[in-house]
Simulated scan of single mutants.
Amino acid sequence: MVAQLLLRKGGAIRSLSIAGMILALLFVAFCLAACDPDVRKEPSNEKPVIYLYPEQASVIDVTLEVEGSLSCVYPAFASAQPTDTGGTWRVFAQPDGTLTDLSSGRELGYLFWEGDAGFSPDFSQGFCVSGDDMRAFLEDALSKLGLTDREAADFITYWLPRMQENPYNLVSFQGDAYARVACLGIDPEPDTVIRVQMAWRPLEVPVQIEPQELTAPARNGFTVVEWGGTQAE
């Protein structure tokens, strides 16, 4: 009788030990998957905003299509069948950039969207900037990239609070790779388009990186400006 009880207890202990080992292995696998960059969520494009500066007050259609998906737009698309990958805004735009959404009648300073555009940032060139120097760096960089003081202020007041507390930040402004996955169609066609997409990641220690040359086209005629950012892991 005692032997049978001992056997039963031993079997129960072995069962509990095996179950514990399985749970431990599952936990380790979960942690490894969470740390695996291949299974992390793609970085999102945060607060891309679009300014319109026509030479004369006019109705303008702005169509956005992304390879990924949109999580939020404002105002709502005016197109009859918007999707989670794009749609069309219709606004009445003034030369000073004031917009009126023709669907709601609301006055706006810009068009807003956010989501996963479906691209991986390129950090082959860029800048390593200390948190203390971010304010001056952004003011200088955004001027070189063609933003006005007002546009730069909108950019800086959104991103600076998240960057200035880091010891360092790796920053690279994205070009054609971003434009290919976040396509803008504008009617009537603008004369000048300036798109500023900043990719960045916080760093604990500085790194060496090939400096990036920053340029912008001259603003001529009907001008469209967009800026946004992506925080990479």
Rank of each mutant, 00 (worst) to 15 (best):
G11R: 04
M21Q: 05
F123N: 13
P161E: 15
C72A: 13
E55T: 14
L16K: 15
A177T: 01
E226W: 01
M198T: 01
P167N: 06
E65Y: 05
C31T: 08
D140M: 12
A34M: 04
T230H: 13
P188N: 03
P202A: 15
T215S: 11
L108I: 00
A29N: 06
F155G: 00
V39S: 11
E65Q: 13
Y178I: 13
A29L: 14
A216F: 11
C31N: 12
F77D: 02
D122C: 14
G11F: 12
Q164Y: 12
E204R: 09
V91N: 01
M1R: 14
L5W: 13
Y178V: 04
E226M: 05
L5N: 11
I60E: 00
P217D: 13
G86I: 11
G10D: 06
V181N: 09
R135I: 11
E107P: 05
L52W: 08
L108D: 00
A76V: 00
Y158N: 10
S17K: 10
K41E: 04
A57W: 03
N45H: 06
G115R: 06
C183L: 03
G10T: 07
D84M: 10
V171M: 04
V171W: 01
F137H: 03
Q174V: 00
N220D: 07
L142H: 07
G228I: 11
A218R: 10
Y158M: 04
L214I: 12
R8Q: 08
E67S: 03
R40K: 09
L23H: 07
L147M: 02
Q164C: 12
A29E: 12
A216P: 10
E67F: 14
M163T: 13
L160T: 10
Q231C: 04
G146A: 09
A177R: 06
S15E: 10
P190V: 07
A136V: 03
L26E: 14
L203N: 07
S44M: 15
G185K: 12
M1S: 14
A12V: 10
G68R: 13
P95M: 11
V59F: 00
L70N: 05
A78T: 11
V205S: 11
T223E: 05
L6N: 08
E114D: 07
L184S: 01
P54T: 01
R201N: 06
L70S: 07
A179E: 12
F27L: 12
G175W: 15
P75N: 04
Q231D: 15
D61F: 07
C31S: 15
F30L: 01
V196N: 00
T100A: 09
E151A: 15
E210L: 04
D149Q: 06
G185M: 02
F222L: 00
M21L: 09
F27W: 06
T230K: 08
P75H: 07
W159I: 10
I186C: 09
Q208D: 08
E165R: 13
V66N: 09
D149F: 08
P217Y: 03
S130R: 10
L16R: 03
A57K: 07
L16P: 06
R150S: 05
W89T: 07
S172P: 09
